Simulated scan of single mutants.
Amino acid sequence: MSDQPTAPPTELRQHHPRDRGEILGMGGMWLAKWSLCLVLIAAGGWVVWTLLGVLWVAVLPVLLAIVVSTVLWPPTRAMTSRGVPPGAAAGITLIAFLGFFGGIIALIVPSVVDQAPELANKASQGITQVQEWIKGPPINLQDDQIDSAVQAIIHKLQTSAQAIATGVFSGVSAAGSMLVTLTLVLVLAFFFIKDGPRFLPWLHSVTGGRAGRHFEAVSVRIWDTLGGFIRTQALVSFVDAFFIGLGLIILGVPLAPMLALLTFIAGFIPIVGAFVAGALAVLVALVAKGWTTALIVLVIVIAVQQLEGNVLQPVLQSRTMKLHAVIVLLAVTAGGSMFGIVGAFLAVPVAAVVAVVIRYIGEQVDLKLDDRDRDAGTEADAGAEPATEPGDLATAD
């Protein structure tokens, strides 16, 4: 009789059902832990927000300078790659930038000065025509009713003047004055584009190897996203301003160059800016040329905005922003309500930066999960029993 090795006896494991209170306790502990984490995150966010409010005078020029630097960096980089010293390249780019916008303003201001009195006269005539129209059928308002309505509107505007001025100039007044802020923005932008390539190595050395790697990756993505947004939005705004301005010039609407420039600037505030600039163009056409011209301008504005919203924005912005239109609208509304025009302008870039950080954190979490699954699979393969029992390999005598 041959001796065959036998498998060790298998111990039966008894499964005791868990108590219901134990399951509820585990869920309660999980909820309490995450609630505490959320409270701590909210407290940290409140501290950061408070510091931002205290340091807003210094933070605002830095944010605006970063946005301006994304526009000025490509020509500066092109010159430095051809051997131009960084300081000279940054100075040439900044002077060309100021000269470009200064030339545009110099070309527009004389036409505004010449046409403003005529537009004011047209506006007064238009108000008179509207008063005559509402006196007739089917409205049939009397003079005293019209006067009371006008006085109520004037009183409302006077009582709201301080609030309106605060909402419009809150971002600029927080930095002292527009001139000081603009000067500081230009100085900071000069140093950013001059010494920008030194920033990432310095950040990496300060934060250390592990954290520096993440900071560097996130910084590069944020810079690419901001640069892509500003350049793409500038292209979209230029298309809007060109076609709307061309239509205004053909129709003979006064202040057409200024309205085109305002359309270009307002285009950097997505959704809201285009609507406000288009409404202003229609209003000027109505006052200066009448209902027919105003309706034609309205059709032009709607057609251009449909081209922007259905063709340019989805094709161009989707590659850089990857933000839903609802998020953009909410960001612009929140930024404008808290910081005025400057907040509305910076709202979308800030939302894009937050989205970049969230996506990067998600990618790192996915990598950690993949590594853990891979390690778990390796351990399972190493601890698996062989498919052939030892007794099967034994041979009888």
Rank of each mutant, 00 (worst) to 15 (best):
I154N: 10
L60A: 08
T159W: 08
G103C: 13
A152N: 15
I249E: 06
S170T: 09
I153T: 13
W291C: 03
G83F: 04
T225F: 01
I92P: 00
F192R: 00
M1F: 10
V304R: 01
Q125K: 13
S35M: 12
L64V: 00
L316H: 01
R82L: 06
A274G: 12
W291I: 09
P17I: 06
D195F: 12
T6F: 09
K156T: 09
G91H: 09
R374W: 09
I66A: 08
A165W: 07
Q142N: 10
A174P: 00
G252H: 09
F275K: 07
G87T: 08
R210A: 10
W223M: 13
I249F: 12
P270E: 04
L51R: 09
W291H: 06
D375A: 15
A277M: 02
K135L: 05
P17W: 08
A58H: 13
S148I: 14
T128R: 12
W202N: 03
R213Y: 05
I327L: 09
I296R: 02
G267N: 04
Q306W: 14
T181M: 15
A387C: 02
G273E: 02
D3A: 12
I92A: 11
P5G: 07
A161N: 09
T50K: 13
V311K: 11
L51M: 08
V315E: 13
V57F: 15
G228N: 00
A78G: 02
P138H: 06
P314E: 07
T50W: 10
A382C: 04
M338D: 03
L12E: 14
I193V: 10
I153D: 07
I164D: 05
L200D: 13
V354S: 06
L255Q: 04
G335S: 14
K33N: 06
N310F: 14
Q313D: 14
V220T: 11
R210K: 11
T232K: 06
R20V: 14
D195Y: 14
P349C: 03
I269Q: 02
V112S: 08
D397G: 12
R210E: 10
P390T: 10
L261E: 02
A347L: 07
G209I: 07
K135A: 11
Q233E: 09
P110A: 05
R231E: 02
E216V: 13
T263I: 03
K122N: 15
L226S: 01
E379P: 00
L64W: 00
S148H: 14
L38V: 14
L346T: 00
V304Q: 05
I361G: 09
P314D: 07
I153A: 12
A90E: 05
P390S: 06
G335A: 05
I269P: 00
T76H: 01
L329Q: 04
I361H: 08
T292I: 08
P8A: 15
D371L: 15
R13K: 11
D224M: 14
I41H: 02
G21V: 08
P197I: 10
L51K: 06
I271D: 01
L248C: 10
E379R: 15
A277Q: 01
V150T: 15
V113K: 09
I302L: 15
D240E: 12
M1K: 14
I358H: 11
V57Y: 10
V185L: 04
